[in-house]
Write a protein that binds this DNA or RNA. Structure first.
Length: 491
RNA sequence: CGGGGCGUAGCGCAGUCCGGUAGCGCAUCUGCUUUGGGAGCAGGGGGUCGCUGGUUCAAAUCCAGUCGCCCCGACCA
């Protein structure tokens, strides 16, 4: 039925691209590595934004906006930070174009900038430079800001939503008087991300700590949530960083504490991006196209009327109109697809490939019998139900779907999480099964890199229950290990 | 940056080997019939064949450049 979608089994990467295209989420732009987010994709992002934004507000944060351009010199102020991002920065060097004789345009060599500008790959530097001016006293703390923005990272290899050169995200940047408070904030926001991933995206995640090799450039600790995609590769879905006093020192952000002493502030930053859309696709969708969780679906229910002649059309549309009102009354995001130029079958297929969770079909038969046909996208089941109390019934269906999507995804993650004891076993499992693999590791970057080189697997995180797990010996070196960490091949 | 693939109508492609009026499917427009899982028939519109140069009576096709995009790897959210 699906038009142009390669099966997951045949070629998962191609399937992913096909779904993005057929569900009209995004197009490739004329510029390599950039994407045009189409209305369907952007509506999804808006719903994500809305939910997250509310959660940020509920935890005391305010939104602000910092500039796209960052003076080049700022990047050099925090040594590790610059090292992490230097290789992927877009640089603005000129400010003008001129017309050339052959009717084209060229950069005006005379417009060269005195100080070149970096297009932000992230905003720590410009924000901390600003915070210096805003923070003098402990009374100015904590400073809890977030911004919704685009950032640019000059990537070698891109994939729509998962890694593009420009992407949309939010970045929270907070300043605190004490280390403890900053760590608490880092953990709190990771919790927000976990809640969002699980309750809204219906995407189970494992929260944990990044190893030194995977840590954000400039952070003391990076916390993350890791999800497992249908092809058994891991996806870092969100990160929250405890920045210590690194940026405070680099940008000289001090405050006078209650005890009268001048101290550097403690910092955090945290972000999720349009990458989440990629994660959403690879968590729930199938060979028929996109599957969306009701809480984030731009359209939760599509009503498709069916008629043969004008008389039927009139009565079916009237019936369907009442149906729509009943759903709207319950706050269901629904559309009545009364387009005349498409046949019902075409509409069924379109809403299916675009991931609309519920389809309500009504024809003359239903009008006569007081029924509605309800079709669920995620498991492709259909039922005829009585139209009485349809609003409540639909709400209930949406709740069930949301929960079933989560349960299915969670079971898949659990079924693909394995424990190994030896390196041979590890290599076999990583290669043949993929998924999350718990194994003992001696805690050194050297061993981690060797494993990566041997198997392409990286440590996705040191899970939070690490200290509770059994000590053992590193599967590679035999050195003592405090507990098992989670490996996977990742996006 | 390596390996592979592709640039021909809005989209997907054939045509290129072997040079000879630029085609097919979908989409689009008009009309009629249709409508419970991507409708049928008839008629129409739409193209600097990525770009530059060369060979030739003649180039989408051959030759030499060049630009771009996609996929797979190395780096990364």
């Amino acid at each position: 039925m699906a038009k142009q979608i390669t099966s997951q089994q045949k070629d998962y990467a191609q399937w992913y691209q096909d779904v993005v295209r057929e569900a009209k989420l995004a197009d490739h732009s004329p510029v390599r590595g950039c994407m045009v987010i189409r209305p369907n994709g952007y509506a999804l992002w808006e719903n994500m934004q809305q939910s997250l934004d509310q959660m940020f507000k509920d935890t005391g944060h305010s939104n602000a906006y910092f500039p796209l351009f960052i003076p080049k010199s700022y990047l050099s102020k925090e040594a590790e930070h610059v090292e992490g991002f230097a290789k992927e920065c877009a640089v603005v060097t000129h400010s003008r174009l001129i017309n050339t004789e052959d009717g084209k345009v060229d950069v005006d060599p005379e417009s060269e900038l005195e100080e070149q500008l970096i297009v932000r790959p992230t905003s720590e530097t410009i924000i901390w430079d600003t915070y210096r001016n805003w923070i003098q006293s402990y009374r100015d703390l904590p400073l809890l800001l977030n911004q919704w923005a685009n950032v640019v990272r000059w990537e070698m290899r891109t994939r729509l939503f998962l890694r593009t050169m420009e992407f949309l995200w939010q970045e929270g940047h907070t300043a605190h008087a004490t280390k403890e408070e900053a760590i608490e904030e880092t953990e709190r926001m990771l919790g927000v991300y976990q809640t969002f991933a699980e309750e809204y995206m219906a995407m189970p995640v494992i929260p944990g700590l990044k190893t030194e090799a995977e840590r954000f450039a400039g952070a003391v600790e990076t916390y993350c949530i890791e999800a497992l995609m249908q092809d058994n590769r891991a996806l870092q879905a969100g990160t929250s960083h405890f920045l210590g006093q690194n940026f405070a020192k680099a940008f000289d952000v001090r405050f006078q504490d209650k005890d009268g002493e001048e101290k550097f502030v403690w910092a955090t930053s945290w972000g999720v991006s349009t990458r989440l859309i990629g994660g959403l696709i690879m968590t729930h969708s199938d060979d028929n196209g996109l599957v969306l969780p009701p809480k984030l679906a731009p359209v939760q229910a599509a009503i498709v009327p069916i008629w043969k002649n004008d008389d039927e059309k009139a009565e079916v549309l009237s019936y369907a109109g009442n149906l729509k009102s009943a759903l709207k009354e319950q706050g269901v995001r629904c559309i009545l697809d009364d387009r005349d130029q498409y046949k019902p079958g075409w509409k069924f297929a379109q809403h299916e490939v675009e991931g609309v969770p519920l389809r309500l079909a009504v024809g003359p038969r239903d009008v006569k019998n007081g029924n509605v046909e309800i079709a669920r996208r995620h498991d492709r089941t259909k039922d005829i139900v009585e139209v009485d109390d349809i609003g409540q019934k639909v709400l209930k269906e949406l709740e069930t779907i949301q929960s079933e999507l989560y349960q299915t995804a969670k079971k898949r993650m659990e079924d693909n999480t394995r424990h190994v004891e030896s390196y041979d076993e590890f290599k076999k499992v990583i290669t043949e099964d993929g998924g999350f693999v718990y194994a003992h590791w001696d805690g050194t970057t050297e061993t981690e890199l060797k494993i990566k080189e041997d198997t392409k697997a990286t440590i996705r995180c040191i899970p939070f229950d690490y200290d509770k797990s059994e000590p053992g010996q590193c599967m590679v070196t035999g050195q003592p290990s405090r507990g098992k960490v989670i490996f996977a091949r990742a996006y």
